[in-house]
């Protein structure tokens, strides 16, 4: 009995907070997504009340070209950016792990640096590096590169995300590389394998769990894309208020005051995140992150 009480004591703080700030908002979001505001009286001026609206908000969300466009845009973004970043991080981790590398500590620290910079600040910083008239890259090449134009801005954002998180992912992969038993390399070398073959045939399969973990977190991160386009929106006319699903939900809620529709969009986004991350885990045949 005494032990039961202490177990409850250990669990209670987390469970209470989890219920209040995770489960309750999710439940509330679902509830709000099922309600619509109905106007009464002549010309709808009599007042507004919340009534049950079934799946109306979801239908609206799915018929809204802006929201769907944003969803398609970040899916395209994810299909390109996530593999590029994970491949880059893997390459850096393998290079640093190889016997040929010098100054490993310096390089590792350098690659990890941007992780300490919040997405908003990274976007402000890169915003200047992209800005016509200020951009040192355009200056270097002697031509004005249109980083913020319609065609390029999505990939300019992808660059910010890659810059921020590649080093962090490299570190996760490095952690797993360090856990590999060095005698495995010894026996591979005895069998005549060179450094490239060891990296490809021995190391790569063994760091699979780290690659799965980083990919799942990257997928979830991609779907939530918000700060970067929100900041660059000030500099680029190519980014509108529905550029990503999170931007859509934000502007439905705080510009149009349509919380029902915003809630439906948030729920749809969370569902997409679940489907994609579990789908990916299923695809690679592993349970849990």
């Amino acid at each position: 009995m005494r032990q039961k009480l202490s177990i409850a004591g250990f669990l209670a703080p987390f469970l209470v907070l989890f219920s209040a700030f995770f489960l309750l908002p999710i439940g509330y979001s679902i509830y709000r997504s099922l309600t619509v505001v109905e106007r009464t009286g002549p010309l709808g001026l009599g007042g507004a009340e919340q009534v049950f609206g079934g799946l109306t908000n979801y239908l609206w969300a799915l018929q809204e070209p802006g929201f769907l466009g944003g969803l398609g845009r970040i899916l395209l973004f994810g299909v390109v950016q996530v593999p590029v970043m994970i491949a880059g991080a893997t390459l850096l981790a393998l290079l640093l792990d190889s016997a040929s590398a010098r100054w490993k500590g310096f390089f590792r620290a350098t690659y990890f640096l941007p992780y300490g910079i919040p997405g908003v600040l990274a976007s402000i910083l890169w915003g200047f590096l992209y800005m016509p008239g200020v951009s040192p890259f355009s200056e270097l090449l002697g031509v004005e590169i249109d980083f913020l134009g319609q065609d390029n801005v999505l990939w300019s954002i992808a660059n910010i995300v890659t810059w921020s998180f590649a080093g962090y992912n490299m570190l996760v992969i490095t952690a797993q590389l360090n856990a590999i038993d060095p005698s495995l390399y010894e026996s591979a070398r005895m069998d005549g394998a060179n450094a490239w073959q060891i990296a490809w045939h021995v190391k790569l399969p063994l760091i699979r769990p780290a690659l799965v973990l980083t990919t799942v977190f990257s997928i979830i991160g991609t779907l939530q894309l918000f700060a970067e386009p929100m900041v660059l929106k000030e500099l680029s006319t190519a980014i509108d208020v529905r550029y990503t699903p999170n931007l859509s939900a934000y502007s439905e809620a705080f510009v149009n005051n349509d919380y029902g529709l915003a809630a439906a969009q948030a729920v749809l986004l969370a569902l997409t995140a679940f489907v994609l991350s579990f789908g990916f885990l299923k695809l690679v045949g592993r349970r849990g992150p």
């Binding site: 908002p25 979001s29 979830i220 948030a266 969370a270 991350s277 849990g288």
Partner: peptide, 23 residues
């Protein structure tokens, strides 16, 4: 409880911010 926690890891935080504001 543990499965709940694992599920929580995968919830996009931004999906919570909006209802949290309303609450």
């Amino acid at each position: 409880v543990f499965n709940l926690v694992l599920g929580g890891v995968l919830v996009p935080f931004t999906a919570l911010a909006l209802p949290l504001y309303l609450l």
